[in-house]
Simulated assay, not measured.
Amino acid sequence: MDNLTFRYNILLVEGLKITPQSSHLAFILLLIAYVFIMVANIGILFQISAEKSLHQPMHILYCNLPLSDVLGTTVVVPRLLKYIFIEPSERYITYVECVIQIFFAHLYGTTSHTVLMIMAFDRYVAICNPLRYPSIMTHSMVVKLSAAAWGVAIVLVGIMIGLTVRLSQCRYVIQNPFCDNASMFKLSCENVAINNIYGLTFTIVLLTSSLGSVAITYLRIAIVCFKSKNKATNSKAIKTCSTHLACYVIMMVSGFTIIFLHRFPELSDNRKLVTIIFHVVPPCLNPIIYGLQSKEIRQRIFQQFNRNKVNSK
């Protein structure tokens, strides 16, 4: 077969590197984390959709985050759980399944930034232009912001995947716990300079836009709070912004750790572990932080819990 068109239909995935003695513990911990992520994030989505009092721009925009977290975790964790009890030499995945996993895994990583960017814009308008907030953050604007967050991510990731699937392959082992773009195009013996350039440009543009927009937003908010003499307003601003900022910092620390460890090949095993953490820890912490900090959601959750408790007696 022509080497320029050759492609393996079945690939071998490295999966988790753990000892047989640790396999059961790893499976239990990962399963508990996955179940919690599903229950917590879907629970908040259901709570916001069911309660009309929570149909506010801030909460509706937040719905994009648990949706992204559920997507990013589901595309990675179930297959990792499956691989734990399968011999490394038997961890197969079809080419099409691998491409699908790459797309949604990178879509999760990208929307983690774009969704938090539109949430930062909402906080900026609410605090810096409170009188104009109802006229700016209309239903139409919320839909446009959400569509932009997902649309931009889909286009950017789609181009990246398109550049990878055009390549032929001369190897078939994905040297990562799950399929990702870099591991996929490294299977090719062709010139992958375009892939590297686009990947680097993609990362720089995304991180610069994310950090820049959030930094400018919070600088403007800080200036407004500093000039304001209303302690109640400032306290509310700090409380609502701290939720968003905490989610953002967790996501950025996880992401930057992966980028940092890429610079040290001898720490490849640590990097692979962090890539899994990136798909597990932020989705675990985001609903806890947002649920506990948001007074409206917290009250609805406690009311629902107490109602169920009374009905069970």
Results as ranks from 00 to 15, higher is better:
Asn9Val: 04
Leu11Ala: 07
Leu12His: 06
Val13Glu: 10
Gly15Pro: 05
Leu16Ile: 15
Pro20Gly: 09
Pro20Glu: 09
Phe27Asp: 04
Leu29Pro: 10
Leu30Ala: 06
Ala33Gly: 15
Ala33Gln: 08
Ala33Met: 08
Val35Ile: 15
Val35Thr: 12
Ile37Trp: 07
Ile42Gln: 03
Ile44Thr: 07
Leu45Glu: 07
Glu51Ser: 05
Ser53Gln: 12
Ser53Asn: 10
Leu54Asn: 11
Pro57Ile: 04
Ile60Pro: 03
Ile60Asn: 05
Asn64His: 07
Leu65Met: 15
Leu65Arg: 05
Leu67Asn: 11
Asp69Val: 02
Asp69Gly: 03
Leu71Ile: 03
Leu71His: 00
Pro78Gln: 09
Leu81Thr: 06
Leu81Asp: 09
Lys82Cys: 05
Ile84Val: 14
Ile86Phe: 07
Arg91Trp: 12
Val96Glu: 15
Cys98Asn: 11
Val99Trp: 13
Val99Pro: 07
Val99Lys: 07
Ile100Trp: 13
Gln101Ile: 04
Ile102Val: 14
Phe104Asp: 08
Phe104Thr: 07
His106Phe: 12
His106Ser: 11
Leu107Ile: 07
Leu107Lys: 02
Leu107Gln: 09
Gly109Arg: 02
Thr110Phe: 03
Met117Arg: 04
Met119Ser: 01
Phe121Met: 11
Tyr124Ser: 00
Ala126Leu: 11
Ala126Tyr: 06
Ile127Asp: 01
Cys128Lys: 01
Cys128Trp: 00
Pro130Lys: 03
Pro130Asn: 10
Thr138Trp: 09
Ser140Ala: 10
Lys144Gly: 07
Trp150Gly: 03
Ala153Thr: 03
Ala153Ser: 11
Val155Ser: 02
Gly158Tyr: 08
Ile159Tyr: 15
Ile161His: 10
Cys170Ile: 02
Cys170Ser: 05
Tyr172Met: 15
Tyr172His: 15
Phe178Ala: 08
Cys179His: 07
Ser183Ile: 14
Lys186Asp: 06
Leu187Asp: 07
Leu187Ile: 08
Glu190Arg: 05
Glu190Met: 13
Asn191Lys: 02
Val192Trp: 05
Ile194Gln: 10
Asn196Gln: 13
Tyr198Glu: 12
Leu206Trp: 01
Thr208Ile: 11
Ser210Pro: 06
Leu211Arg: 00
Ala215Tyr: 14
Thr217Lys: 02
Tyr218Leu: 01
Leu219His: 11
Ile223Leu: 01
Val224Ser: 02
Asn230Glu: 05
Lys231Ser: 14
Lys231Glu: 14
Ala237Tyr: 01
Ile238Arg: 00
Lys239Asn: 12
Lys239Leu: 08
Thr240Asp: 03
Thr240Pro: 00
Cys241His: 03
Ser242Lys: 11
His244Trp: 01
Leu245Ala: 06
Ile250Val: 15
Ile250Asp: 12
Met251Thr: 15
Val253Ala: 14
Ser254Lys: 12
Gly255Trp: 13
Thr257Cys: 14
Ile259Tyr: 15
Arg263Trp: 06
Arg263Cys: 04
Arg263Ala: 09
Pro265Ala: 08
Pro265Thr: 01
Glu266Tyr: 11
Asp269Cys: 04
Asp269Ile: 02
Asn270Tyr: 10
Lys272Tyr: 02
Thr275Cys: 09
Ile277Met: 12
Val280Leu: 09
Pro282Gly: 08
Cys284Leu: 13
Leu285Ala: 08
Pro287Leu: 12
Gln293Trp: 10
Lys295Asn: 14
Ile297Phe: 06
Ile297Asn: 04
Arg298Gly: 03
Phe302Ala: 11
Arg307Leu: 06
Asn308Phe: 08
Asn311Ile: 15
Ser312Tyr: 14
